[in-house]
Design a protein around this nucleic acid. Structure first.
Length: 487
DNA sequence: ATGTCC
């Protein structure tokens, strides 16, 4: 007897614990799979996620199944929390399956400070960070620059930041892809996008983006934590942001171009927001190059915020950042597509792995994992809400087989921003966090705090539990917020 | 997410 669940005319069959399948039918090229507990599946079934996932199976060249991670929710065309691995020679590439915020991602910086070292300095620290790390909508970055410099950043990523003195060689080695995408093409990025980016280099932006000082509260795997340089009570810094207006502009430019030039493919797809360029076409190559360039821009963005953070810590604690051992643990992207070789039915194929709100989670042994972590698996950083903790995982042994080397990226929202503003008042949320949890929050706008209230997020513990039980990403450590700045 | 519509 098969266990099934039905949501809005979509039936899912239970394959095994935490694995639900929408069987292939009608125009679907492959089945779809949702990786979730029963509790998370109920939330995923609430909005358009399942229909979007089912639609995605119609993209030409989709391999095995379209996947939804445990934190999935509806997005533009393709679910946030979606993974689509598409043949890079005979399939297609879809900007909607990457997301508007190209290389939105997270990085964690270690320190050798303990929570005790920081207590009493929270207010000064949060204020100084807020003054020195640009945030909010619109312009204003750590550096104000010009189109020519933006082009350098787009082409060279972290290498540019090293030359300019904003990054070290160790920083570069601890970014996914070593902070520079080989196929990045600044010429494929419009002038308009470059102009939007030129005064946003080193800026958080708005929405769910933030910089958070955290303390490590739990260690689940001692040996892996040691390899990652994490221990209980340690202070770490988490930075979550992306490619700002530049990446957004790249996405809209190419959605429009692809819609215009590849109307034939578009006509076969169930949702125009899935617009895709056929593999081998001029636009597929151009979008891939422009996306790679926007990815480099986002890495530099997070690097300049790191640079400012180190300077702020130097000022507040009166020590050099090197003395506080403020090294980059790792920087992960969670809105990208990348050509990767994967095993499909016993054959190795080049695939465009689209991860939209999903994190690469390569296991131990893979050469893409930085040398320092190669024996334990890559670090995977999963931010929770500002009142809950965040997790550091390591890529699990089953990830290559189950999810094309991917896992979740966050807690995922449970209500709209509009609803959140009706249910919460920013200052109240802020006061409660400080009084009840000793969390110091500072934001450009009270509305942002309301929109990001801890209550609007799913249970990050449950997301991580499912990831761990599936063997795609294993919990290594947990952190809890101390100071949070945001747009 | 986003100069929340060129």
């Amino acid at each position: 007897m098969t266990t099934t669940r039905e949501f809005q005319d979509i039936t899912l069959e239970r394959v095994r614990e935490h694995v639900w399948e929408i069987p292939k039918s009608g125009e679907m090229r492959v089945p779809a799979r949702v990786l979730a507990s029963e509790e998370l599946l109920e939330q995923i079934g609430d909005d358009k996620t399942l229909q979007q996932l089912k639609n995605a199976t119609q993209l030409p060249g989709m391999q095995k199944y379209a996947l939804c991670m445990p934190d999935g929710h509806q997005g533009y065309g393709f679910p946030v929390g979606g993974v689509g691995a598409i043949d890079a020679e005979e399939g297609c590439i879809s900007p909607g399956a990457v997301g508007f915020d190209i290389n939105c991602g997270v990085r964690m910086i270690r320190t050798n400070l303990t929570y005790e070292d920081l207590q009493g300095n929270e207010e000064e620290l949060v204020e100084t960070l807020f003054e020195n790390v640009p945030s909010g909508l619109g312009g204003g970055g750590v550096v104000e620059t010009d189109v020519k410099t933006v082009e350098e950043i787009l082409e060279r990523g972290l290498d540019w930041a090293i030359e300019e003195g904003y990054a070290t060689e160790a920083d570069r080695l601890h970014c996914e892809d070593e902070g520079r995408r080989p196929n990045a093409d600044a010429d494929a990025v419009s002038e308009k996008a470059k102009n939007r980016g030129k005064n946003q280099v080193g800026s958080l932006g708005s929405g769910n983006h933030f910089l958070e000082v955290q303390r490590v509260t739990d260690i689940y795997k001692e040996d892996v934590a040691e390899a990652f340089g994490l221990e209980a009570d340690q202070i770490v810094v988490l930075i979550h942001c992306g490619s700002r207006g530049l990446g957004h502009q790249v996405c809209s430019d190419y959605v429009r171009k692809i819609e215009q030039r590849h109307g034939d493919l578009l006509a076969e797809l169930p949702d125009k927001d899935l617009a895709a360029a056929p593999a081998g076409s001029e636009l597929a190559a151009e979008y891939y190059g422009a996306m790679g360039a926007a990815i480099n821009f986002a890495w530099v963005n997070r690097q300049l915020i790191t640079h400012q953070t180190r300077k702020v810590f130097e000022r507040v604690f009166g020590r050099d950042w090197q003395d506080m051992e403020m090294e980059l643990l790792y920087d992960v992207a969670h809105n990208i597509a990348k050509k990767e070789p994967h095993d499909v039915d016993g054959e190795t194929r080049e695939l465009y792995v689209h991860r939209k709100g999903a994190t690469r989670a390569f296991p131990a042994g893979r050469e893409e994992v930085p040398r320092a972590y190669r024996d334990v698996g890559q670090p995977v950083i999963i931010p929770g809400s500002m009142g809950a903790g965040s997790y550091v995982l390591r890529g699990g042994a089953e990830s290559m087989q189950e999810t094309f080397g991917s896992t979740a990226h966050g807690a995922g929202r449970t209500m709209s921003r509009t609803q959140a503003k009706q249910d919460y008042w920013g200052e109240t949320v802020q006061d409660e966090l400080q009084e009840q949890n000793q969390i110091y929050v500072k934001a450009q706008s009270g509305a942002t705090i309301a929109e990001e209230a801890p209550g609007v997020y799913k249970d990050v513990d449950e997301v991580v539990r499912v990831s761990e039980e599936l063997g795609i990403g294993d919990a290594v450590a947990r952190t809890f917020p101390v100071c949070n700045i945001k747009g």
